[in-house]
């Protein structure tokens, strides 16, 4: 099972990772903002992650690390 670690201060909430995740494991948490004021991508702990790393591949801000 995979897992995504979000470097929240790097994230700008562009949402590219959300679109690429087939399992829908990532969402923008509108209740939390980082110091730059962006809603940040958040990894959903309760779903299955294959660890495919497409989210990290497409992230233009190098905000995601993927573990498997």
């Amino acid at each position: 099972m995979g897992r995504v670690a979000v470097k929240e201060e790097r994230c700008k909430g562009c949402g590219y990772c959300l679109e690429v995740c087939k399992e829908g494991n990532l969402y923008l948490d509108s209740t939390r903002r980082n110091r730059s004021g962006y809603s940040v991508a958040t990894f959903s702990e309760d779903k299955v992650c294959s660890g495919c790393a497409l989210c990290a591949e497409i992230c233009p801000d190098v905000a995601l690390e993927v573990y498997r």
Binding site: M1, G2, R3, A53, E57, E65, V66, Y67
Partner: peptide, 13 residues
């Protein structure tokens, strides 16, 4: 399983 026990498959260069 904690992150520490997993293998990092994508990291910043």
């Amino acid at each position: 399983m904690s992150i520490a026990a997993k293998k990092r498959v994508f990291a910043s260069p």
